[in-house]
């Protein structure tokens, strides 16, 4: 479940408000979004991809909140591993989704 908006990193671009499929965020008074409907979060992590400054943290536990603070979390790994946005030109994080068929075939060959 979406756990944190890191205010120090947030540029108040409003992208997360728009792209969240569960409409979890509202635009806040200072421009920084607020978690208006946190319990509606479907824990898809996609907001993290769309946050260019890695100001969002989704906890993998979809059943509860965890009272974490900014110092507890590292953000940006999903966006980085996806080679998304500012990582797009980094050869280290090239999209290797095409391997999936080969991995399934490997698994089948072992059973």
């Amino acid at each position: 479940m979406i756990e944190l908006i890191l205010e120090a990193q947030c540029t108040a671009c409003g992208e997360c408000v728009t792209i969240c499929p569960s409409n979890v965020f509202d635009g806040g008074p200072g421009g920084v979004p607020v978690l208006a409907r946190q319990q509606d979060c479907q824990t898809c992590f996609l907001c993290e991809l769309y946050c260019e400054t890695d100001a969002l943290f989704v906890h993998p536990d979809a059943t509860a909140t965890h009272d974490l603070t900014a110092i507890d979390v590292a953000t940006g790994d999903y966006r980085r591993d996806s080679g998304w946005g500012s990582w797009a030109e980094d050869a280290q994080y090239r999209n290797e989704h095409w391997r999936m068929g080969d991995v399934f075939a490997l698994a089948r060959s072992r059973t």
Binding site: F45, P60, D61, D77, Y78, D81, E96
Partner: peptide, 13 residues
């Protein structure tokens, strides 16, 4: 690099 989201639940816990 195949499925970047699969490791998130493990890494973060």
């Amino acid at each position: 690099l195949i499925s970047p989201n699969v490791m998130l639940p493990f890494r973060r816990q």
